[in-house]
Amino acid sequence: MKLRSSLLTAVGSTALAAGCQGNPFPDPPVHIIQNMDFQQRYEAQERNDLFEDGRAMRRPVEGTVARGEVHLKENDHLYRGRGPDGRLVDALPSNIVDSAALLARGEERFNIYCSPCHDKAATGHGIATTRGGGFQVQPASLHQDRLRAMPLGYFFDVITNGKGTMLSYAAQIPAEDRWAIAAWVRTLQTHGKTKGWDETTGMTTVAAAEPAAENGAQKDG
């Protein structure tokens, strides 16, 4: 009898402990072989107490140019959205082609980075602005006449440097994607609030046809 009951307890407690599998627990999992699991090198975003701020990753020196951005200085169009005269441009940089692929990319990126506030149709009623008391400044509708008349470079500039209460997205979005988003904003503006474009029409630069664009560019340039 004693044997049976101890067997029962053994089986029972095993089953119980096995049932704990997957339950949340707050303490770090056991690492038996410490020096293999945590070798003497640092990974991205790891902690290093040697430095005052505790970051193992050091900040790049002011003015550092990322690898691949070699033509940063020369390529004002690609990286700043400005032409040789220092004014905002109304065309895509030469290495980016207006194509269905670009617009698809732009749509995807717009929905990731902009739609939380501006919503997918760019009317300025994104979900984040409706929660927790709402935004102090409502995001702009990108269909206003004022913005419809802006050159393409203006949208690139707003994403890169922010505008008013909207902060810069330069750290989150690479320059090429910012142009794709700008192209998609233009597509939304010209083809209505819904996706009314088809792949043959592509992005249309309304601003190019309207002289108002020049004024807008001057004001902000």
């Binding site: 096995a18 599998q21 949340p24 627990f25 303490d27 770090p28």
Partner: peptide
């Protein structure tokens, strides 16, 4: 690891 790691929630 499915016993020791799954569920780690610091």
């Amino acid at each position: 690891p499915s016993f020791t790691d799954v569920g780690y929630r610091p």
